[in-house]
Amino acid sequence: MKKILIILLIFTGQSVFCADQILSTTLPQVMEIEKIIVENIEYNRDDPMPNMNIKDSTNVDANTITLRLSPVKVQLHTNSSTPISVNATFKELKHTSGIYNFNPSNLLIKPSTYTINDPYDHVITDIFTPYVNVKPDTILGSYRGSILFTLGGL
């Protein structure tokens, strides 16, 4: 067993070394978020999205109004030929004065995930739509929110 392990370790070391060699001479796998697109305006990763706004509102019941925010798309830079999953999470929405924070249960994005089965470079996802449920205790004012986009191979 020890011999096998020693051989494996030597092999591993070589394979890692070889991998470096190959990566330096062949096309590396690229898979990253390239742009965030809000109503045809493109933003870089982690940039603010100043044109995000409330598109309309719907009375869900006597205690809830649902606000639909601007739709968002994600553009990818990839050379992957295998399916890619793009996930969006409405992280938070807080009053700029800190006097009211939305409960995460009242923040949602539909759909939360897109799977791109046949990816290509600069592929753009369908729209992610953020929604906010406004309750009677919501304080009126300016709010700061954030959406987290996550990319992964399948």
Partner: peptide
């Protein structure tokens, strides 16, 4: 694959909520 992330922030005023469609 190694997932990549992007955290994008925004500001919206909720002092200008349009009247809702009453469902």
């Amino acid at each position: 694959g190694t997932p990549q992330t992007s955290l994008n922030s925004f500001e919206i005023p909720i002092d200008a909520v349009p009247p809702g469609t009453d469902n």
